[in-house]
Design a protein around this nucleic acid. Structure first.
Lengths: 166, 166
DNA sequence: ACCCGGAAGTTGTCCCTACAACCATGTGTG
DNA sequence: CACACATGGTTGTAGGGACAACTTCCGGGT
């Protein structure tokens, strides 16, 4: 464990990234909670389901697409089910599996939440960067995710959103 | 609230950032918890204190430097105090204020934790990017933080770490 | 047919965070 | 001096996430 310390340039980058990690999620999460009574993570769940042709996904796949662990997703989906946003039904083919289905109420909720969320993402992320920085950011995030995602689980998720640096 | 939806390039960037926000904190936090029994946030607290000349900071300033709210910091510091990592003492000048002091045990703890943490930051962030990307990232994070930090509180924090894009 | 390993989910528990309410002290203004 | 208001901080509580244990089920080998 004999690792060289970070130099000035590296430290400058890391400190800013760390601050970002601390602040950005809270900002977006707060907006969604206040305006649509949904967590940022719950929003992702709704989004992934709504973009599925069948409006449904298996729990394990949903977990992969939202970068979450299965236990966490299970808890969240249970709460969402009690609020009528999704439904869980056992898969007849594989009786271990559970399919998570987006309800009409859930669809309505995300359609209601989307404009405000997009506005927040624009305000705090997209619109404060130049187009050049945006493509740089895509490349950077790609590199970081590859090093984090050893199991390759979430490759499927963002591969669908295949921008300039896909 | 009539906001244009994100185009392909913007969406590609945002989806990757969102995934990063979900995964990176957990990775770094997990490493510190396992190897040093400290939270990522607690590590920052120790780091900010250890870099202060007096090894102490007022709560409000410590909160600003760690991008945290005061209630959160208060809870965390209380727990850390019970573990002997820091001490709290009232400020004689302003009797509302509380000064947080790093103990010898706290200093030992962060010195013990630092190598592993730096290794993780290198492995997952610094070393997977080219030097060019690293300076790009600094500029990007700077722009984002400026838009998030309306109160200007954390400017003080990362201004100290003044790299190429300072 | 049986057994064993692994995959899919669920549940329980503990810790952490956000939010709001609250207390105490300082500061400015008439 | 008295008042209102702001500042610094703590506490209570409710809710979300991490981790580990457990159940059920599939599949391959013998």
């Amino acid at each position: 464990m004999d690792v060289p310390w970070l130099d000035r340039i590296q430290l400058a980058a890391w400190v800013r990234v760390a601050a970002l990690l601390e602040v950005l999620p809270g900002t977006l999460d707060g907006q969604l909670r206040r305006d649509a009574d949904v967590t940022l993570f719950e929003y992702f769940v709704l989004a992934m389901l709504s973009e599925s042709p069948s409006r449904s996904l298996r729990m394990s796949e949903l977990a992969a697409q939202t970068s979450a662990t299965l236990p966490r997703l299970s808890h969240v989906v249970k709460r969402m089910e009690s609020r009528g946003l999704v439904e869980r039904r056992p898969d007849p083919d594989d009786r271990r599996a559970t399919t998570c289905v987006l309800t009409d109420g859930g669809l309505a909720r995300i359609e209601e939440a989307a404009p405000g969320h997009v506005a927040a993402v624009r305000e705090h992320v997209v619109d404060v960067l130049t187009p050049e920085q945006l493509t740089q950011l895509t490349g950077i995030a790609d590199a970081l995710l590859r090093s984090l995602d050893t199991s390759g689980g979430m490759a499927a998720m963002y591969r669908r959103y295949d921008g300039a640096a896909g």
